[in-house]
Design a protein around this nucleic acid. Structure first.
Lengths: 240, 240
DNA sequence: GAGTGGTCTAGACCACAGA
DNA sequence: CTGTGGTCTAGACCACTCT
């Protein structure tokens, strides 16, 4: 089975919401009817609907039905989901994002990095400082630590392209979970130099640890964003 | 049935992780064994584990087992989940949070508010500006719009206590979904006055729309946080 | 009472990891 | 090959909403 049925069903219903077959604020056919129509069990339909509910496309009311949520007024195309694993290139587009390597070295981790990446002092890490540019304009300053043993043979060509592509496609590693902390902070001298932030410009900072599906921490990083070009978005649903 | 079985099972396993019965990085008993022990079907156990996985307590590896993730190094008690509906009082504690009402009026909504709350121009809204203090120190400046028809009889006593308590317990309304946008911005004169922010202090801003379980928007609000006392946290899991 | 979504079961088969 | 989690089914009962 190449793809789970419930994912196919979810895509079908997703498409129907997008193309207007199911209208905003209007109810979908009930789960049993969808199950019949699509040739699966009701539970499989429910699982598909649960996924779409988490994504914010619909909501369910026990006893009443399943409804299309409709457009979210404050949502814009510039919003960055805080719940995605994709790198900047996949998120925004390969053509638009370029990277400048400011620093790239291999070192032994200090105590904080050891703790965050669950390493010994003798396990070397990459220490990567990259400036990411959007249409040639400074966008994000990323400081990334990764264990060398998990990401062998990292080089400048990969850094200039996409680390995530290398990890996912070449090394075939999969991200499992991430803990992300978002805060505002003052512009440092580096922000002023590389992001071309003014001294009193705020910075939107994201600090995160990413784990592989096998529970190993693979990345500890800090992203400093220009305040005028980026925000993070969270969609929250009861129960989830 | 007062509470779903899978929620009880989840709590039991949660407790076992907390009290060290299941150790970090170690596997839990397999789903079938847990099902036998706890007297439920395997699917019910899986549902409980799925919930704990979303919360970040454990991760699963198909073919291998279910493992305890363990402590998250960068997590602190000050972290505010960006995925909760609770108000400040429930989050931080009734004793520590006080509120000062800066402005409280009823008005007809402008176009933006009409769109965000899905209202007509003739549907009045509350326009509430509150300063929330933590241990007497300025903490968050909240600007909230709510439809009058959904939240009748709001008054200053409620605003000084907890709006969310009133909505949930007195009106018995339930929040269903929320779309939250987090950004950094510069301190305005109001931030300087009420939050006692300096002119060049950054502000951590959260803009959100909250919907009830029946799909009606009940709140559009903007929270301006002092940068040195608050951050938002997102936990992300593959598939979820 | 009728119709909806939520939960739960027993049983089956699949995909995947490791010996 | 064995053991794990992932998916799927058919059928059942429950809680909830509205008429």
């Amino acid at each position: 089975m190449s793809e789970a049925k419930y994912l196919k069903i979810a895509r079908i219903i997703h498409d129907r919401i997008k193309d207007g077959t199911y209208q905003a604020q209007e109810p979908l056919p009930d789960q049993e009817a969808l199950a019949q129509e699509l040739g699966v069990s009701r539970l499989t339909v429910k699982k598909a609907l649960d996924g779409l509910e988490r994504k914010g496309l619909l909501y369910k009311q026990s006893g009443l039905g399943t409804f299309v949520l409709g457009e979210i007024p404050i949502q814009t195309s510039r919003d960055t989901s805080a719940s995605e694993f994709s790198g900047l290139q996949e998120e925004i587009g390969k053509e638009k994002i370029t990277s400048k390597i400011i620093d790239f070295s291999i070192e032994f981790p200090n105590e904080q990095i050891q703790k965050n990446l669950r390493l010994k002092g003798s396990d070397p890490v990459y220490d990567i400082l990259r400036l990411r540019l959007l249409d040639g304009e400074p966008f994000v300053l990323e400081h990334t630590y990764m264990p060398v043993k998990l990401v062998p043979n990292l080089d400048e060509n990969i850094l200039k392209a996409s680390i995530y592509n290398y990890i996912h496609q070449k090394l075939e590693l999969k991200f499992g979970t991430a803990y992300r902390k978002i805060r505002a902070s003052k512009a440092t001298k580096w922000d002023q130099k590389y992001l071309e932030a003014k001294q009193d410009d705020p910075i939107l900072e994201l600090e995160q640890i990413i784990w592989l599906t096998n529970g190993q921490p693979i990345e500890y990083s800090t992203s400093r964003n220009r305040y005028d070009t980026r925000n993070y978005v969270v969609f929250q649903n009861k129960d989830f």
